[in-house]
Simulated scan of single mutants.
Amino acid sequence: MKTNITFFTSYQSLFLMAIFCILLSILSCSKHADNVPQEPVDTVKAAPEETIWHVKAFLPEGKLLDVKALDKEGKIYDVKAIQRDGNLHMLDIKALVGDKQLPVKMLVSDDKYTPVKAIGEDGTIYDIKALTPDGDKLDVKGINRTGNIIQIKAISKTGEFYGIKALSKQGQLYDVKGIKVSPDRIETKVSGVDVYAHIKALPQIGEDSSDTIWHVKAIHPDGKILDVKALDKDGKIYDVKAIVTDGELHLMDIKAFINGKTLPVKMLVSEDKYLPVKAIGDDGTIYDIKALTADGEKLDVKGINPSGSIIQIKAIAKDGSFYGVKAISPHGNLHDVKGVKFTDEQTEMTLNGVKVYAHIKALPVVIDN
């Protein structure tokens, strides 16, 4: 009997303990969820990823002019195109003044050509100029409008127009244009300044096939361009150009202009790591193709990455850096210069006794979004 009482007492104690735990749990859960401490939430948005493009004026002879902002004392600041978060559809144009990125806009004006200026946070106006090597500061202005787009040009002292472009470190080229969205004369106000149009860098879509001879250049990451030339065994230098035939811009020939002849430039069969790019004379003479630096260096131009029917062509710096090779029209349009194969054979053809691995052509630029 005593055993039964002991068992009952123990069972009763366990039962009461269980009831106590259940009540404690209910009381704990009855607290409102808002009273429960929460992990702190970071409400600060991450800064957008930015890629900087150079802004340049293109001269008809294939040279570039820096486009800069100037304050009233003549101090010079960079003007750049800003690509944000990988967006390649439309790049902002900014003047980099101190630690600020100031908007560059087209201002309301009754002048023949519409002024292009940078605007400070306090409404200060900065001139936008294209700077020549001899110190001239050329106006940059909007010159004519078609629909929502306004052409922007640097204007020489003799009244010539030079296209304004954004140039990536990889050698991609965009047009810098004015964009007007509002039907009103005043598009918007920025820091109290009346703005006629925004200024953006846009992908190139229109090309002038009247330019039949295009320059061939290597693009340095700093925004400089290097002449690409042919050299004979004595070191004499000859022009290398891209040729437009019958207005066809999809596949332009690359030729070396040597002693009154236009000689084909090809990629040769080779066991080297990089494939040599050479001009070939009528008698099989081989001419080197080099990119020439301002200090006289002659950089090899070679095929570096065969991929299917397309081979990348680069100028190779002494430190192993690769510079893209491009064809640039007198109006500032740009094509990629690539090796192109039409067969699966290592020897694409034999030209004047020389085994050719691939043709070399200028092709429209393709940019991935």
Rank of each mutant, 00 (worst) to 15 (best):
residue 218 A to T: 05
residue 54 H to F: 04
residue 44 V to G: 00
residue 90 M to F: 01
residue 42 D to Q: 14
residue 356 V to D: 03
residue 143 I to K: 01
residue 345 E to W: 00
residue 28 S to N: 07
residue 150 I to H: 10
residue 350 T to W: 02
residue 190 V to P: 00
residue 278 K to Q: 13
residue 235 G to H: 11
residue 166 A to N: 05
residue 96 L to A: 08
residue 168 S to R: 10
residue 260 G to Q: 06
residue 99 D to W: 03
residue 247 G to H: 13
residue 72 K to Q: 10
residue 16 L to H: 06
residue 294 A to Q: 15
residue 221 P to M: 05
residue 132 T to Q: 11
residue 347 T to C: 05
residue 84 R to E: 12
residue 112 K to Y: 02
residue 296 G to S: 08
residue 92 D to A: 08
residue 300 D to H: 09
residue 303 G to F: 02
residue 130 A to I: 03
residue 114 T to S: 14
residue 222 D to Y: 09
residue 7 F to H: 00
residue 35 N to E: 14
residue 302 K to E: 09
residue 64 L to E: 14
residue 306 P to D: 08
residue 213 I to G: 00
residue 37 P to S: 12
residue 346 Q to T: 15
residue 321 S to R: 12
residue 116 V to Q: 09
residue 169 K to E: 11
residue 215 H to E: 01
residue 216 V to P: 01
residue 368 D to E: 11
residue 15 F to L: 13
residue 211 D to W: 06
residue 290 K to E: 04
residue 354 V to I: 15
residue 41 V to N: 05
residue 99 D to A: 09
residue 180 K to R: 14
residue 59 L to G: 12
residue 340 V to E: 00
residue 265 V to F: 02
residue 332 G to C: 08
residue 236 K to P: 04
residue 246 D to C: 02
residue 199 I to G: 08
residue 337 V to F: 03
residue 245 T to Q: 09
residue 316 I to Q: 01
residue 50 E to F: 00
residue 295 D to H: 11
residue 300 D to F: 04
residue 54 H to M: 06
residue 88 L to K: 13
residue 339 G to Y: 05
residue 127 D to P: 04
residue 211 D to I: 07
residue 49 E to S: 12
residue 126 Y to Q: 09
residue 207 E to K: 14
residue 89 H to R: 12
residue 245 T to Y: 04
residue 233 K to D: 07
residue 188 T to I: 07
residue 209 S to L: 01
residue 205 I to E: 14
residue 197 A to S: 15
residue 332 G to Q: 06
residue 9 T to W: 00
residue 362 A to C: 11
residue 48 P to V: 09
residue 200 K to Q: 11
residue 280 I to S: 05
residue 306 P to N: 06
residue 350 T to N: 02
residue 22 I to H: 06
residue 63 K to S: 15
residue 7 F to S: 06
residue 304 I to E: 02
residue 357 Y to G: 08
residue 118 A to H: 02
residue 201 A to M: 10
residue 61 E to A: 13
residue 181 V to E: 12
residue 138 L to F: 01
residue 328 I to E: 00
residue 350 T to C: 04
residue 312 Q to W: 03
residue 284 G to Y: 04
residue 122 D to P: 03
residue 272 D to V: 09
residue 258 I to V: 15
residue 305 N to H: 13
residue 225 I to F: 02
residue 30 S to Q: 10
residue 331 H to F: 03
residue 357 Y to E: 04
residue 122 D to V: 14
residue 16 L to K: 15
residue 248 E to V: 07
residue 355 K to Y: 02
residue 178 G to T: 13
residue 283 D to R: 02
residue 349 M to H: 05
residue 32 H to G: 07
residue 227 D to N: 15
residue 223 G to K: 09
residue 147 G to T: 13
residue 198 H to T: 11
residue 237 I to E: 13
residue 231 L to Y: 13
residue 194 D to Y: 06
residue 128 I to S: 08
residue 79 V to G: 10
residue 94 K to I: 11
residue 346 Q to N: 14
residue 368 D to W: 04
residue 162 Y to T: 15
residue 155 I to T: 07
residue 261 K to E: 15
residue 135 G to L: 03
residue 233 K to Q: 10
residue 281 G to Q: 11
residue 145 R to M: 10
residue 4 N to A: 05
residue 289 I to R: 13
residue 268 L to M: 12
residue 126 Y to R: 13
residue 277 V to R: 06
residue 139 D to A: 13
residue 208 D to M: 09
residue 248 E to L: 06
residue 12 Q to Y: 04
residue 23 L to T: 14
residue 26 I to A: 12
residue 309 S to D: 15
residue 18 A to S: 12
residue 159 G to K: 06
residue 72 K to F: 01
residue 183 P to T: 07
